[in-house]
Design a binder for these strands. Structure first.
Lengths: 181, 181
DNA sequence: CTGTAATTTCAGAAATTAATGGAAACGAGG
DNA sequence: CCTCGTTTCCATTAATTTCTGAAATTACAG
């Protein structure tokens, strides 16, 4: 293993990232593996990661699989080495978009589906109070709008996105219709 | 308790919301209490919530406190009743913004602080590889940009926000500079 | 004040989730 | 079609989180 882990700041970063993960429903080891790869400038193989983070091999393997399913880590081949090696996405915009995409797929899409069915089911039912029908419907619509928006934003070229971010609330100035700002 | 819980769709909604919570680092009971209040058109007191969700009184109390700390549930007084009653925010935009605000405060602000210190600490250090300094710095800047953007968006009037959302990727058309869309 | 109802706190129990190590499966190279 | 190094699976153990009930505290009415 490199001397990356000899740098206290690197260890510190990895630990913090692990904690962040747990706060957002990502398992600590998975987040730590990700942090390590993010800070590495060369592909690492599973054994190195185990050693660096003192995790069981199987745990690292699972973690790598999970990170790959998010598409923020990918397998690369290293010349003359039979083992798989791994590198992390280092473009943070790309990373965020990919994380969002996967969580949308795993959690939001099924929820929209589910709420759609609920809304359907209570639609016009005498025994269901109006306000319940309304609120289920509004939740359905709301989550739909959010994910629709995400799908849109995802397809914007990165420079446009960055420009948008930088604009912040200044965006209001450029919108059609009355300037409500 | 009302007959809300007699409606299978209502139970179903509450259960699903509870699961969603756990996926995002919010405790299941807390999310369920929230779901129940969201679907209720009148203030509920703690005892009713316990009964409805079959949770211990203390658990409900903790959950309500948590929801209040997010500002998506508030205490209201009901005429002639000594007990505290609770209602949920039903404007979903408002709710999302408040959730975001609180998680920013709890998780992002400390992380930015932390990364700032790390970046400071490795700045110009010979023993820290350039790419590590760079990547820590970029992460710091990135999270900073995100939360800055949030702060901006939060202050936009809701109609503007909604307009923005609806526009989606069409937004590119209205931006200054070359139309990269 | 005093007594009672409502709420919060807290330490331990229960449940859930994560991590481990060994065994089985896999696959590239011979 | 073996062999060797690697990865994946799975049952067990460990750690963490959640939930509970009893005790403490607070709020309030008389």
């Amino acid at each position: 293993m490199s001397k990356l882990l000899d740098i206290p700041e690197v260890r510190s970063f990895i630990l913090h990232w692990g904690e962040m993960g747990t706060e957002w429903g990502v398992n600590r080891s998975v987040a730590q593996v990700h942090a390590l790869l993010y800070l590495s400038d060369r592909p690492l193989h599973a054994e190195e990661i185990c050693e660096a983070l003192a995790l069981a091999r199987s745990n690292v393997s699972t973690g790598l699989k999970e990170l790959q399913s998010y598409q923020i880590v990918r397998r690369v081949h290293v010349e003359g080495d039979r083992r798989d090696h791994f590198v992390a996405e280092t473009d943070l915009w790309e990373m965020l978009m990919k994380l969002a995409a996967e969580r949308k797929r795993r959690e939001f899409d099924p929820t929209i589906q589910f709420l759609g069915e609920l809304a359907e089911s209570v639609n016009g039912r005498e025994d269901v109070p109006t306000h319940v029908r309304e609120r289920i419907g509004r939740m359905h619509e709301f989550i739909g709008t959010l994910t629709g928006w995400y799908a849109d934003v995802r397809n914007l070229p990165k420079p446009t996105l960055v420009r948008l971010m930088k604009l912040g609330r200044g965006i209001a100035r450029f919108l059609p219709g009355k300037s409500t700002d």
